[in-house]
């Protein structure tokens, strides 16, 4: 595919490229290879040269970047093409035998996910969400979080005392809230600041008093 265009000005060169590629400006990456120069009295005038490439989509960029990271950190592992989810994209990696990409309590995975999202946004210009998963860790962790939430909800009911869970990510807290909703007689609220933010499960009609239980 053609990548370089010339024009009297950078704008003109870019306009030609966009016309030929049939793409809007936000869908391309532009690099100015040579700035135009006027020359003296119209002599020695130089044209502008630009390189214009179609931007990758968010999911293409995410996969490409993850493959790069995996080639350094866990060359035996394999990156699957991202699949669309309700909230964005799921990017799965399989075969990271030692869990190098996961880390303690998923800390490395969380950092990777953040970098993948930053990179994919930077390259594609599309602001989307991505969840990175390795060896099905997200699923296993979600099941564990659900179990902990149910356990704490039962404890809150039995003792009548608020139950504080361990610090969790935003997504894990969301899992706790939806799990707690399945149990009658308790409600949940998040408290504290990231990364120490955690869910507290309150027995309804008891516990702390500043907001009313929402019962109609």
């Amino acid at each position: 595919m053609r990548e370089e265009w010339t024009g009297e000005t950078v704008e003109e060169a870019v306009a030609r490229a966009l016309h030929e590629l049939g793409l809007p400006p936000e869908r391309v990456e532009i690099t100015v290879l040579e700035a135009p120069s006027e020359g003296l009295f119209g002599r020695g005038r130089k044209a502008a040269v630009v390189r214009v490439r179609p931007r990758p989509t968010f999911q293409e960029a995410a996969q490409q970047f993850m493959e790069g990271i995996v080639s350094y950190m866990a060359p035996e592992a394999e990156v699957h093409p991202p699949v669309p989810t309700e909230r964005g994209w799921m990017l799965s990696v399989a075969g990271d035998g030692k869990g190098v990409l996961i880390g303690r309590r998923g800390k490395t995975l969380q950092a990777l996910q953040y970098l993948v999202e930053m990179y994919a946004f930077h390259r594609s210009g599309e602001k989307e969400h991505v969840v990175v998963d390795v060896n099905d860790y997200r699923h296993r962790r979600r099941e564990w979080v659900r179990k902990e939430a149910l356990k704490a909800a039962r404890m809150a009911l039995r003792t009548g005392k608020p139950q504080r869970l361990e610090p969790m990510t935003a997504y894990e807290r969301y899992v706790v809230h939806t799990t707690v909703q399945e149990v009658g007689g308790v409600r949940s609220a998040s408290e504290g600041r990231e990364p120490q933010r955690r869910v507290v499960i309150y027995p309804e009609g008891g516990g702390e008093g500043d907001d009313q239980p929402s019962r109609r």
């Binding site: 990271i69 990409l101 490395t108 990777l112 970098l115 930053m118």
Partner: peptide
């Protein structure tokens, strides 16, 4: 671009690099 708001990108880079080194 490598530090980020409140150092978030730098922190993520350090976490990943620590994991790579631990390997």
């Amino acid at each position: 671009k490598v530090i980020g708001r409140q150092g978030r990108i730098a922190r993520a880079i350090r976490t990943v690099m620590k994991a790579a080194g631990a390997r």
